[in-house]
């Protein structure tokens, strides 16, 4: 929870990445009053105040591993940022959440991986539609970014490249 100083931001159109300052504060629960700008609210809380928040581009959502993208549905397409929490990098549910948000619910904003995020999962995250990575505070961000390039070809289609290799394999 809280605010990490830096994130890796990936441009999904050209694969370029940069390390940028983080503006967003992820909270365990919101307040009764107006939600401050640049807040990431738990999904449940956002849903409770959906009508008030749907128009606000400066409020985002974060998903826990057992939150269901179905609960947000097509509203995803109107949000500017969604974070997905990986309490442990071995909890792979967030990968499915990412793909569903991107591929089924039309989410086009920033999809951010938070929690136990470091070099060795970045490429899978990228393939599942993530384009922002809040690297664990005790890890070297520059080194972590290199993980995005561990592989340059993939067999299966995913959020980043919907066409599987067998539809691209030239001769």
């Amino acid at each position: 929870m809280g605010k990490h100083p830096h994130i890796i931001k990936l441009d999904r159109s050209n694969g370029q990445r940069e390390i940028v300052a983080n503006h967003w504060l992820r909270v365990a629960e919101g307040c009764d009053d107006t939600i401050p700008a640049h807040t990431l609210l738990p999904l449940k809380e956002w849903l409770e105040r959906r009508d008030e928040l749907l128009g606000r581009a400066d409020v985002g959502i974060w998903f826990a591993p057992d939150d269901e993208p179905e609960a947000l549905g097509q509203d995803a397409a109107r949000l500017s940022i969604i974070a997905v929490d990986f309490p442990a990098f071995t909890d792979g549910r967030g990968f499915s959440i990412g793909r569903l948000l991107r591929e089924r619910y039309g989410f086009a904003g920033e999809l951010r991986a938070v929690g136990d995020v470091f070099k060795d999962t970045l490429l899978y995250l990228r393939r599942c539609g993530f384009d922002a990575f809040e690297i664990r505070a005790d890890k070297d961000v520059e080194e972590a970014a290199k993980g995005l390039d561990d592989f340059s070809e993939f067999y299966q289609g995913a959020a980043d490249q919907p066409l599987p290799l067998f539809r691209r394999r030239g001769g």
Partner: peptide, 13 residues
């Protein structure tokens, strides 16, 4: 085999 190799969504089942 090819489908399952480095499947990004199912690496941490």
């Amino acid at each position: 085999r090819q489908w399952s190799t480095f499947h990004p969504e199912f690496a941490h089942l």
